[in-house]
Amino acid sequence: MTELRLYMAQRLSALVMAPLVLGHIAVMIYAIQGGLSAAEILGRTQGSVLWALFYGSFVIAVSVHAAIGLRTILYEWAGMRGGVLNGVALGICALLLAMGLQAVYAVTAT
């Protein structure tokens, strides 16, 4: 049952990520027209609830997706099992969440 939930969580997080990746790439291409500056980016993102939600949900989806994928690799290739395996995977998820959400906060907070 746990394996099934993890499988579904990884697929659903991929489903969330797909449009966000496309949106992210589209904005990158749009944003670098006429040069790239921190001020320009912050001008767009600071105080924007939309960008906070966009990248906030992106970070959550990535953290869930990557942690489950790495858990499988650690199980199959590094021989990790049981509590150690789940602990490391949770740690990876927490690290990605903390770093990502901090970055989102830094560019969207006013």
Binding site: M1, T2, E3, L4, L6, Y7
Partner: peptide, 9 residues
């Protein structure tokens, strides 16, 4: 087939 070691592996 959805338990541990099932088709999701």
């Amino acid at each position: 087939v959805s338990a541990k070691g099932g088709c999701h592996a």
